[in-house]
Design a protein around this nucleic acid. Structure first.
Lengths: 111, 111
DNA sequence: CTTTTATATACCTACTTGGTTATATAACTA
DNA sequence: TAGTTATATAACCAAGTAGGTATATAAAAG
């Protein structure tokens, strides 16, 4: 994944309103008005959040008359996930090496 | 995980310099100077990035004389990872339901 | 004690962000 | 065609961010 794409994805995920929008979209496609309803926020604010999510590739939108139904897009989500898992794996590898080290140390100190 | 904690974690991950710092730290503990060296950026800038990573719980630091060795902290990384995986799972569940739907549709159309 | 080294803080600037209200566009409805 | 509904855009503002340079602090070396 391109660094700039990861920037956009993580930045998009860094806002609670946008994560809530994704949570809602995980339950299924919906419209902007329906999305905006539970938030104490103006419709333009939600439209802006959607634009951020769209630019990050986390959401895509169709056309149904005057509605612009939004749906979650798995690819970017998966790529951010991959990045995180990758570093978690490396860290865990370091951690287990530390474990081995501590184990060896213990053996030496209790012969 | 608290929403505010996720905010901080994802925001911290949304910067390429900070992700590069984590990449370096995944290889093992190191000092601020050593971290700053490969970047075309002032030392205070790196210190600021470290503060962001620390506030997000992604990095912690010890004390070794005048050095402040930094190490990666798995917990926050793991929690962000969990959040992402959770939504990926939900989305995949929706996707397989859509698969089932398309499968049913196909059967009906080719009797 | 003085100097050097490692790191942090203060202060400044340019840019971005998240929200607002007002308005535009575009598609239904009567 | 006129009015209403769904959504987007424009213009604005307050707050936050990423960078810079200069300086402070604190430990180490001499």
């Amino acid at each position: 994944m391109q660094p700039a794409a990861l920037d956009a994805t993580f930045a998009a995920l860094a806002d609670p309103t946008r994560r809530a929008i994704l949570a809602r979209l995980a339950l299924g496609e919906t419209t902007v008005m329906e999305l905006a309803e539970p938030f104490e926020m103006s419709q333009p604010a939600i439209s802006k959040h959607l634009k951020v999510l769209e630019r990050a590739g986390l959401v895509s939108r169709g056309r149904d008359g005057q509605r612009r139904p939004c749906r979650i897009e798995a690819k970017a989500l998966g790529e951010a996930n991959e990045w995180l898992e990758n570093y978690r794996r490396i860290w865990e590898a370091n951690f287990s090496r530390l474990d081995v080290l501590l184990e060896e140390l213990k053996k030496k100190n209790t012969p």
